[in-house]
Design a binder for these strands. Structure first.
Lengths: 205, 205
DNA sequence: AAGTCAATGGGTAGTTCTACCCATATCCAG
DNA sequence: CTGGATATGGGTAGAACTACCCATTGACTT
C-alpha cells in the first residue's frame, strides 16, 4: 500500500509527459506533471514525500540546473534524470550531482516502472528522516538564547558549577536553565539531550 | 604537499597502465599499479589512504565486480572507473554502485589528472573519518561484556539504580562498572560517552 | 497598565553520582 | 600456583543534581 508519496514529472514534451503520466497512473502511482522546471518549483512543496522524473533538455531552466538547485536546498527528493539522447558525459555529471538514477526514454515500461518505484521508496525513507530531523530542530529552537548557550555546554558534559563560572552566573540560575531545557526538549537525561542534538547530522542505526 | 595517499591503478592493458602510471608520476603522485583485480586485492592495505583508478573490462574479476566487492567491505576508497568504450548503462551502474567518478580513457591528460587529484583528496578525507571511527570502536571494545551492557544503558540515560534493578545487580556493582567504563573510554561524562558511541555512524559538524 | 516571559538569585530537602576504603569468587595465563 | 582481570557486594563521605519553595528586574504584548 502506497503512502501519499507523489511522482513529479517535469518534461516540456507534451506527448512524452502524457505518455509517462498514463504509464505511472496505470500502475496506481499518484502523479503530478509539469511542463517546465519553473512551473514545478512554483508549486512544489518540499515537505511532502515523492520523487522527480526529470527531463534533461528543456527550454528555460534545464534538468541539470534544476537538479543542482534542488540539491543545494535539501536532498530528500530523489531525482531520476530522464533523457532521450543518453551520452556518457551527461549521465556522469548528473549522477555525480546527486541524481538518484539516470534513465533513457527508450527504456521499456517495465524498467521505468521499476526504477520509479525504487526512487519513490527512497523518497519516503528520506522524508521520514527529514521529519525526524526537523522535529529535533524544532525542539531545540524552543530554547531561549541563554538556554541554548547552557545546552551546548551540558552536552559537552560540563557540570553546573563550571557552566556557572564560565558564564558568570550563580549555580542556581544554571540549574533553572537546565531544568527548563530538559522540559522544553522533553528529555529525561543529558544523554538523551546529546543524542537529540547530534541527530541533526547523523543517522543512528 | 601530499600525504602518503597512493593512487592505485588496476588495468590489464600494459601500455595503458604504464602510460597512466607515467602521467601520474610526472605529476608527483605516488602510484601503485596492478594488472588484475586479484593482484590488487592481494596487496591492498585498506588502512592507508588513497584512490583507485580501475579498468572496467578485464579478464578474471571485472572492474564492476571489484568495485562492488570493495563497497561491500568499506567505503573509504574512492574509485574512478576508467573505460575505453563508455556506454551510458555501464556509467550509470558504476556510479550507482558507489564509484566516485567515471572517466573515459580518451580524456585528455589534464582532465584525468584533475579527477585523480579530486579522488585523492576525497580518499584522504574518508581515511581521516575512518581513523576517528576505528579509534572510537577500539575504545569501546576494551570494555568487558558486562561493562558493555551497562554502557548501553548509561547512554540511554538510565540511572545506576534502574540499571542495577534491570540487570539484577547491586548499585555498588553498577557504580564500579560505570567507573571502569569511564576510565577505559577516557571520558569525563556520560555526554562524552554518548557522543563517542554515536560517532560510529555519524559525522558531526 | 497589566500580564507574560526571560533571566537573574536564594533556601532546603532529597536523590544520585563520585571517590575513596574494604571484601570474596571465578577464571585464565604465565 | 600466583597474579591479573572480571564480576560481585558493602561502607562512608562529599560533590553534584533534582524538586520544590521564594524573590526581583527588564522587555515585550495585549
Amino acid at each position: 500500500m502506497a503512502t501519499n508519496a507523489k511522482v513529479y514529472i517535469v518534461d516540456d514534451d507534451d506527448d512524452m509527459r502524457n505518455s509517462i503520466q498514463w504509464l505511472l497512473e496505470s500502475a496506481n502511482l499518484p502523479v503530478c506533471a509539469f511542463e517546465s522546471a519553473e512551473q514545478f518549483l512554483a508549486s512544489y512543496n518540499e515537505n511532502k514525500p515523492g520523487c522527480l522524473l526529470l527531463d534533461v533538455r528543456m527550454p528555460g531552466m534545464g534538468g541539470l540546473r534544476l537538479l543542482e538547485y534542488l540539491q543545494s536546498i535539501h536532498r530528500h527528493l530523489p531525482v531520476i534524470m530522464f533523457t532521450g539522447y543518453g551520452d556518457v558525459d551527461t549521465a556522469v555529471r548528473t549522477l555525480k550531482a546527486g541524481a538518484f538514477d539516470f534513465l533513457e526514454k527508450t527504456a521499456n515500461h517495465q524498467l521505468i516502472l521499476e526504477r520509479v518505484r525504487l526512487a519513490l521508496a527512497e523518497g519516503e525513507t528520506l522524508h521520514r528522516r527529514e521529519l525526524d530531523r526537523t522535529r529535533c530542530k524544532q525542539l531545540l529552537t524552543k530554547l531561549s538564547p541563554r538556554e541554548h548557550e547552557v545546552m551546548l555546554r551540558l552536552i559537552q558534559g560540563q557540570a553546573n558549577k563550571l557552566i556557572a563560572i564560565e558564564l558568570g552566573l550563580s549555580e542556581r540560575t544554571v540549574e533553572k536553565h537546565r531544568k527548563n531545557i530538559m522540559e522544553k526538549t522533553n528529555v529525561g537525561s543529558i544523554a538523551e539531550l546529546t543524542r537529540l542534538f547530534y541527530a541533526h547530522d547523523s543517522e543512528v542505526v
